[in-house]
Design a protein around this nucleic acid. Structure first.
Lengths: 365, 365
DNA sequence: GTGAAAGCGCTAACAT
DNA sequence: ATGTTAGCGCTTTCAC
């Protein structure tokens, strides 16, 4: 057992327990072991080691065994970089999350984060590695970097923002990639996304069915997905023969403060409303908490529906009605589409079904 | 403008808009352009291109310009795999998230997900790439793979689980890595983590100060971090001279259903309690919603404090009191520690300050 | 069944 | 200022 000095001082991010692996091991960070080492130790050539390690039938069973054991005991693993270079192959997918250059907001939306989790799981299952990076939303073309540098077989882009044209250009250039987002007219690239128009319609229909007549839409319709959700909101109104009011359609970015301000304005302007359809669950929860601060309670005074069905929607109070997007399916669909492009298939968009999850926030009584 | 067939059918994950980048471009997925191509086109040698592209002063300004333009117009980017191989360098960090082999739960904890976001941001700032993968918690030693295969310079492990020994072995073997978690006795590797004992103490003290006398702890103390939070819970009780009750310390895993069951049992067993300290915010919210189902309201009948201060804690109802861990600092601290190990420094653990964030869930009236 | 040799795409002496 | 050469760690003909 090692006895290490126990630290006392505690200060913000200060070293509290200096220990050293190298010191403990009493050795210099050994040069990484490689095939040549194994070969020398086993008394065979490098080629034989290579074959043995790839389970080639060409090599003597006993030799293979010996080499395998040796490799294991030395913690040897094939250098993937060199292997990839030689094989011109690559089992890595680049996942890119754009950030808004204006706000430079950190990555925090629970839905996107969960999607990343789902992608990570799917890729792990498929034996792929995942390269995660962020990129200025104005320079979405940089997302192709992982591909052009040969690091990745293809690219998954989470959110298309306003850069429709840059994406089309990327596709024409032959970069295998898929975008999580909305399908747009004149689109050469593949998207995978929920049925946003349908989802928006479901949510709004539901609110109208609950007796609401003055439904506010909150979200930034400049983002394609949100624009389509608003489109669904509008369709539902048409279906019901209810006239749309411009002042009930609020353009609000995904920033907590902005949402709170928007709610205050809504109240200050005296806009009459009895329900809110928010473009995301996070937004819906902030709306609810802002309304509460202003003395209005949900669902008594105002019904609310969100979007995404994040894990916490069910645990919040009141439990949040929302439109669910199938995250697990999404991760798999994105990867499957990407890999099929890589193996030569044409870029094909997919739309995932959305589902209304009615909970208490949209039900009176 | 391209005119594409507009699809009609919509079925779960069915192709709705077959389009093809390759077809649109009318070309076969061109062989990736490489240095030799640029060299030929520019009428120089490969070395000159290499130098020009790395802004070497050895190359004629005009030549450099010409080569640069050529590269840009061809969307050429240096093949990082080859470059790394040659340079024996590597600007990639492997981030590994263990999964519980029993539940095989998907990656979904908001705190970990945010931490990943923070790591991604930090690495992007530092000009590093991030390789994200998951690994069986029983085989944490596999986390070193990214390093042994030469893909990554070092490893960040998110959560140490019960594999203290495997981690020590990794450290002795010379793998540069940092663990997000709790500092343990006889630890050769570096951890970065919040002050869990302190955090648990803050939370419990606060509950006692609010007048609670029968505080329940919920969480799985087998996880080092949670164990330390419970330690803080115990210390606070000692300080206050309040005897601990075993039946108020509940071992509960991070699974929504299990948490709900645990709350029901607590009530069914007739355990007397007036406050709950939950090991995470997600758990706290589930506890609150379970209590509500049983007809108890928070904070009126029972005070609740969580842990992590996730984004939604402030928006939930009642706003959740919690202990905040500085996520941004955490991401930076993890990466800084890792990179300093890579450049030869000794493995050093860091403890980040935690802070009580009192909100309404723990305040009566 | 095994070894020798060439080459994946790049960089860095060492020439010139 | 530019070209030639060798080699990063691996796989795979092609010989034996």
């Amino acid at each position: 057992m090692l006895k290490l000095p126990q630290p006392v001082t505690i200060s913000p991010i200060s070293p509290i327990s200096p220990t050293s692996a190298a010191a403990a091991a009493g050795e210099i960070p050994a040069a990484r072991v490689q095939m040549a080492d194994i070969a020398r130790l086993a008394g065979v050539s490098v080629s034989t080691v290579s074959r043995a390690l790839s389970d080639s039938p060409l090599v003597n069973a006993e030799t293979r065994q010996r080499i395998g054991d040796l490799a294991k005991s030395l913690h040897y693993t094939i250098n993937i970089g060199a292997q990839n270079l030689r094989l011109k192959q690559n089992r890595t997918v680049s996942v890119v999350v754009p950030y808004d250059p204006k706000t430079r907001q950190h990555l925090s939306d629970p839905f996107f984060l969960s999607l990343i989790g789902s992608l990570a799981d799917t890729l792990t299952e498929r034996g792929y590695e995942m390269l995660l990076s962020r990129v200025d939303a104005d320079r979405l073309d940089l997302a192709a970097n992982g591909f052009h540098t040969g690091r990745a077989t293809g690219v998954v882009l989470i959110g298309q923002w306003h850069q429709h044209d840059q994406l089309n250009a990327m596709a024409v250039r032959g970069v295998p990639f898929v975008v999580w987002g909305a399908q747009m007219p004149h689109q050469v690239y593949a998207t995978v996304g929920g049925d946003n128009v349908g989802g928006g319609r479901l949510a709004t229909r539901h609110l109208l069915a609950q007796g609401a007549t003055k439904v506010v839409f909150m979200g930034d319709p400049d983002l394609p997905e949100i624009g389509q959700r608003r489109q669904g909101y509008r369709l539902a109104h048409e279906e019901a023969g209810i006239a749309l009011q411009p002042q009930r359609q609020r353009q609000v970015p995904f920033v907590a403060e902005a949402i709170e301000v928007a709610v205050q304005q809504l109240l200050a302007e005296g806009v009459d409303f009895d329900a809110v359809f928010a473009a995301s669950d996070l937004m819906a929860m902030t709306v609810i908490s802002s309304l509460r601060k202003a003395g209005r309670s949900v669902p008594e005074d105002c019904l609310v529906v969100g979007y995404d069905d994040i894990a916490l929607a069910a645990q919040s109070h009141p439990p949040l009605s929302t439109v669910s997007q199938p995250i697990d399916v999404a991760g798999r669909a994105l990867i499957d589409e990407l890999l099929s492009q890589v193996s030569g298939a044409r870029a094909t968009s997919h739309q995932l079904p959305t589902e209304l999850v009615p909970r208490q926030s949209s039900q009176r009584g």
